[in-house]
């Protein structure tokens, strides 16, 4: 069945169709939740919450809307709700907090390039987690999920102008974070842009 048929079947209560719909979209939902939430368990819970919200709300989903945009809206809501609850319970996490968990590099011998790449990945993820939730949200929808500004506006309920400025500020914040941590970017001459 295609997506529309699956959605219709879900509306009629088909759990089989719903499970297939999950498999069709689990990758993008989990990816977004994983990059929104520092904690892997939280990411899993938010991703599950997203699909449960789909099941609960599928009756009101309009077929002339874009399902993936709606799905992203539910996913970002699930992440933001969970992150808010976590902050309330934990008192928040500061970059200066001694208890902040930082993954240590694998002690097994690795090629230098692999170590550097692993460190790079970790630093960029930490920088993303350090962003305010609302900034991380729009940046990930743009960079990771490749949504247009209009789609991001629809998914988040933000004004288009707000989406544009938040993405810009999020990129700037990320750049400043990575620069302030002592790491900086080196540009390869092979990364020369193409002026059109």
């Amino acid at each position: 069945m295609d997506e529309i048929e699956l959605i219709r079947a879900c509306r009629e209560g088909s759990e089989t169709a719903f499970e297939e719909l999950i498999r069709m979209h689990e990758s993008k939902v989990y990816s977004l939740c994983r990059r929104m939430c520092r904690d892997e368990d939280n990411a899993l819970e938010a991703a599950q919450d997203t699909f449960l919200a789909v099941w609960r709300g599928i009756g009101s989903f309009r077929e002339d809307s874009t399902f993936s945009t709606w799905l992203y809206r539910l996913a970002t809501n699930a992440c933001l709700d969970l992150l808010r609850r976590e902050k309330k319970h934990s008192g928040g996490v500061s970059l200066d907090d001694e208890d902040v968990h930082i993954d240590l590099p694998d002690p097994a011998p690795q090629p230098e390039e692999a170590i550097e790449r692993s460190e790079t990945q970790r630093m960029v993820r930490e920088a993303l987690y350090a962003l305010p939730d609302g900034y991380r949200e729009v940046l990930l929808l743009r960079e990771s999920e490749q949504l247009s500004y209009q789609e991001i506006a629809e998914a988040t309920g933000l004004e288009l102008g707000t989406v544009k400025s938040r993405i810009n500020r999020a990129r700037l914040a990320l750049k400043n974070y990575l620069a302030a941590s002592g790491n900086f970017f080196e540009f390869s001459t092979s990364k020369a842009a193409k002026k059109q």
Binding site: F187, S190, K191, A193, Q196
Partner: peptide, 21 residues
């Protein structure tokens, strides 16, 4: 910057590296 890049333009090779500390 050696030039400008935009989405949809020919993607340059990713040969850059980050100096990690």
């Amino acid at each position: 910057a050696a030039g400008y890049r935009e989405e949809g333009a020919e993607e340059p090779s990713t040969g850059g590296s980050m100096l990690m500390q």
